[in-house]
Design a protein around this nucleic acid. Structure first.
Length: 410
DNA sequence: TCTGGGGTCCTAGGACCC
DNA sequence: TCTGGGGTCCTAGGACCC
């Protein structure tokens, strides 16, 4: 059986933990550049503010309702996430974190009633210890556990915990197809067109027919809904790419300013790479104007290159990225997004030496640089932009990760 | 005026191999 | 005139997720 723990309104809830005066009010957390709504309190949801909605479209409504908007504060969210995951790990035999705010546990042996009871206790503990409310779904497959979790969140009568057995046809009949995990904005209309409107309809469809039209993905969806588990248990533990990119607050045409922004992103990406003891042998640069620009002002391009050998040296990445930007850059466009992707990652330990590069080891200069930065020293490559080029107007303090920001109680 | 960032997996098609 | 069969690897693009 799978147990899925998922935090309610996670980013919004994190903000409310340290601001009791923000509870029971419409609150939204904004994406980078204060562009889109990425998390909403219950009250904001009730106002009809949609997930992913551009902030400028709901700003006035929110302000009129006395609501609050915060810029995303990932230092805070990651830290609270770590605390919650730690509680789960201590309480459960096999846990796989799936995202910043959810984790699957795989359990067996005891009855689902025992586990329901256990989940209620864990839920209570997380609430007491972190201030965050989680919902729990229990089911024989991950897809059903997702559905159980959604229902546990929405329907107060379940009090945050729900078990769905393999034969839950009556529930599936009431579940629209677009509410199923793995059915997105493309698949849903296609399925509707073929007469599949509910989860029950999908579960009942012929596997061969689904395979033909939707590939292995469609077949797996149906099996999972029937209670036959067919998704991977083991998450891929080493990532395959590191990306750092931002939308810029204003269109930038100047190549030098773009390069400075890019170099800052390369530096950050390389630091992430080293913090996970990885090396990369491919570098990509992406550059684009606003997606919403008129055709004559629209430009989007991406180009990559292969490095002579896997490395974790920021200087080599900067050199490659700078050359790629030179190749991609076309004058006359107001660029709104730039970023770097490090790919073809390998664990430093398992990189093969070659005749040209017999010594594979973390770059010592980079190690020193990382150490200095960890200690709070400001040491950077001189080609990096010094002013942030994106907006982040109203981030909350880092209550749990920065000494100066620790809240006072009196 | 204003529209995020960072991932994964699958598939089809091309290049190449014996 | 007639031109196989069975593979692997890589990449781009499309779909999904939070």
């Amino acid at each position: 059986m799978y147990l899925l723990f998922d935090c309610n309104n996670f980013f919004a809830s994190c903000e409310q933990v340290f601001r009791p005066d923000w509870r029971h009010r419409p609150l939204v957390v904004l994406s980078n550049n204060d562009g889109c709504v990425v998390s909403r309190s219950q009250e904001a949801k009730q106002m009809g503010i949609a997930m992913g909605e551009p902030y400028f479209k709901c700003r006035e409504r929110l302000e009129q309702a006395g609501g609050i908007a915060c810029s995303a504060n990932f230092a805070l969210y990651s830290n609270l996430s770590d605390r919650i995951m730690q509680i789960l790990e201590e309480s459960l035999p096999e846990l796989h974190q799936y995202s910043i705010d959810e984790a699957f546990a795989i359990v067996s042996q005891r009855s689902h009633c025992d586990w329901l009871d256990e989940c209620r206790k864990i839920r209570h503990k997380i609430r007491r210890w972190t201030g965050i409310t989680v919902s729990v779904g229990l089911a024989p497959t991950k897809t059903l556990a997702k559905l159980a979790n959604e229902l546990a969140k929405k329907k107060p009568e379940y009090k945050g915990v729900l078990h769905l057995p393999a034969d839950c046809d009556s529930v599936l009949r009431r579940t629209p197809i677009e509410d199923i995990w793995g059915v997105g904005r493309r698949l849903a209309p296609r399925m509707h067109g073929l007469g599949i409107r509910t989860a029950a309809g999908l579960a009942a469809a012929s596997l061969d027919w689904l395979r033909q039209r939707f590939g292995v993905h469609g077949e797996r969806l149906a099996l999972e809904l029937r209670g036959v588990s067919c998704l991977e248990d083991e998450p891929v533990n080493t990532r395959s790419q590191v990306m750092v990119s931002r939308s810029l607050k204003e269109g930038i045409e100047d190549e030098t300013r773009l390069r400075e922004a890019l170099c800052g992103f390369v530096e950050k990406a390389a630091r992430i790479l080293r913090s996970e003891a990885l090396m990369a042998s491919q570098v990509y640069v992406v550059l684009r104007t606003s997606r919403y620009a008129e055709n004559s002002q629209l430009y989007a391009a991406q180009q990559g290159c292969l490095l002579p050998h896997p490395t974790d040296d920021t200087r080599l990445f900067v050199k490659a990225a700078t050359e790629l930007l030179k190749a991609l850059y076309r004058p006359g466009y107001p660029y709104r997004k730039i970023g770097v992707l490090l790919a073809d990652l390998q664990e430093t330990d398992s990189v093969q030496p070659t005749f040209d590069h017999p010594q594979v080891a973390p770059n010592p200069l980079m190690q020193v640089l990382d150490k200095l930065q960890r200690e709070g020293h400001q040491v950077h490559f001189a080609n990096k932009a010094t002013e942030p080029l994106w907006r982040c107007s109203q981030a909350s303090p880092c209550y749990t990760t920065r000494w100066a920001d620790i809240p006072e109680a009196w």
